[in-house]
Design a protein around this nucleic acid. Structure first.
Lengths: 337, 337
DNA sequence: CTGAAAGCGCTTACAG
DNA sequence: CTGAAAGCGCTTACAG
């Protein structure tokens, strides 16, 4: 093992300098690819580094450079796998720029934003609908740290960039799809937070535009609530012939409720969701839904953060990606059509 | 904003000391709850900290203490949501001990272990089947850093703790369940790596014990391969009446293949998986499977790491949690029983 | 092109 | 109980 000195500690620039017969400063310059180093000395230093297995200590570097090359990622709810696709594209963007995600669960860690800020992260990404405490803490940061919100529509602060999909357009598209299939009684299970409100508004606008009466029931983002709410809706005398749930997890709950009540999908009931979660693609589920291009949201959120870190001082903005309607076999013509 | 000094930089122990009229060392002692500080001075320091909004810089602390309170978490494949439940319990354990997970994707980042080690993480958790390069890098670490493997059965190195479920027992339980249902032709779709081999061995042992001939087909952990392999198996003249797939994702592929071929589940074909992934609980899927208690695996992995960091020097060990058979509606009596 | 010095914000012995 | 000093491993002006 050439990588350890006699002291048992990993080599430092000091060790390298001694080995190469130069000063510590010179080693540092080589480390930073400074052009002001003669080829001969550069070679000597590089050779010494290789022999010793030298790896620069990022902690020391962080201390003097005042940046940790670390991004705090606060995920609203680590147990909801919705964030998986988003993280999948966010991480490589950070990685390309020498940044790493430091994870926190916003749900179980109300102080996450402050904690990450104390840790001197270089920036923060809020993934999913942030908790009120997270919003308050971001507000207090007052732009001292770049913050990007990914996949949510709040908070809309002057100091925060936001990347999401156009929830209004998505909700309109899926509602219009159901209207075109001849459905008149189309219920909507409402989601939480700003995203829930926007999807609901898109649904209502489309219903009104078609001369139909909206019918909403409050839900959340979970499958269980989807089951419960759908049960109530479907047991009514004049039950809807279509249900648009605010997300796929809730829509799967609707499927379950329909199975439970002996209703065939889509013959007796059309079901649509939102998010295009990976399980929605399973043929057993085959859910009509809206693809919010969440991996693109993740990538763009990473790019925004990277740009801010490299000095982009343009005013913060909201970027809305255009979502796509994905028609699968959970929706079909209204009964009698 | 009382938290910033005129210089625009956050307050340091120096600022606090000046404000409280004491030396820097004293501030440091207060920070560490040293008993050797008079109540009066302690109060003065605490008050100064509060007024200034002082937050100790963990970077400086890391440099001198030689630990970053950060754990590198290498997830074999960030796009396979299998790890979600594991992370869900691993993170809180770390958090309770002032540690945070620094994420890496083992699949897209072959150098992840070295990179995290260079970053001076205090320990490493390998989640899922590690890549060969990750194994090699862990081997090179030679115990310089505590490493725990969670949810996999490899590598079995003298320097590595391992927490997983008893894949052999789980595979035996699910196979026995199918045998008891009267199935004679039970095929197994084999998974990858050591875990795949162990589950296969459990299946084969149980088949032999029941006087039945094992029938295996090589798969991987994906749904698509599950579909393809199941198609081949089910199109054969003497098709199996039951298929045990090495994980739930592949089992869902089997369900899809069965639907495609017009086979009813479980009347014509019983299907079982392994992992009890969250989608398996959806009533549309309702997969008979093995619950490996992955959240417990995550928690124990975290506890092992924490123990190592607090000086536990007992020889490394493998902990195998007892898995549980979960019978749902995808399995039933063999045709004719 | 190169080296000696100062400093990043802490902690840790070491004296008193 | 308290303070002055050294040092963690780097980078950053600053002289030559």
């Amino acid at each position: 093992m050439p990588s350890e000195s006699r002291s048992g500690r990993p080599p430092t620039i000091h060790t390298v300098a001694a080995r190469a017969g130069v000063s510590k400063s010179l080693v540092s310059l080589v480390l930073q690819n400074s052009p002001n180093v003669s080829a001969q000395r550069r070679e000597a230093v590089l050779a010494a580094m290789a022999e010793l297995g030298y790896r620069p200590d990022p902690v020391a570097r962080s201390l003097v450079q005042r940046r940790t090359r670390t991004i705090g990622v606060v995920i609203d709810d680590l147990s909801n796998p919705w964030y998986v696709d988003l993280l999948h594209e966010l991480r490589p963007v950070l990685h390309e720029h020498g940044l790493r995600p430091l994870l926190a669960d916003g749900r179980t860690e109300p102080d996450a934003v402050n904690a990450l800020s104390d840790l001197r992260v270089d920036g923060i990404a809020l993934v999913g609908t942030p908790s009120p405490s997270a919003v308050a803490q971001v507000n207090e940061l007052a732009g001292r740290l770049p913050v990007v919100v990914a996949g949510s529509r709040e908070p809309r602060l002057a100091t925060v960039d936001l990347v999401a999909n156009d929830d209004d357009a998505g909700a309109r598209a899926v509602t219009a799809h159901l209207v075109e299939l001849g459905h008149r009684r189309i219920a909507h299970i409402v989601g939480e937070g700003e995203v829930g409100l926007i999807r609901r508004a898109g649904y209502e606008a489309t219903m009104h535009g078609a001369g139909l009466a909206p019918e909403t029931a409050q839900g959340d983002w979970t499958e269980n609530t989807g089951i419960r709410v759908a049960m109530d809706l479907l047991r009514a005398d004049d039950r809807p012939t279509a249900i648009f749930a605010a997300n796929d997890l809730a829509a799967v709950g609707v499927l379950t409720a329909a199975d439970e009540l002996g209703l065939r999908v889509p013959e007796d009931l059309s079901v649509a969701g939102y998010d295009d979660d990976f399980f929605s693609r399973m043929r057993r589920i085959a859910l009509t839904t809206v693809d919010p291009h969440i991996t693109d949201v993740g990538r763009e959120a990473g790019e925004v953060l990277v740009a801010r870190l490299s000095g982009d001082t343009r005013s913060t903005a909201t970027r809305l990606l255009r979502p796509t309607l994905v028609v699968r076999s959970s929706t079909g013509p209204a009964p009698g059509h």
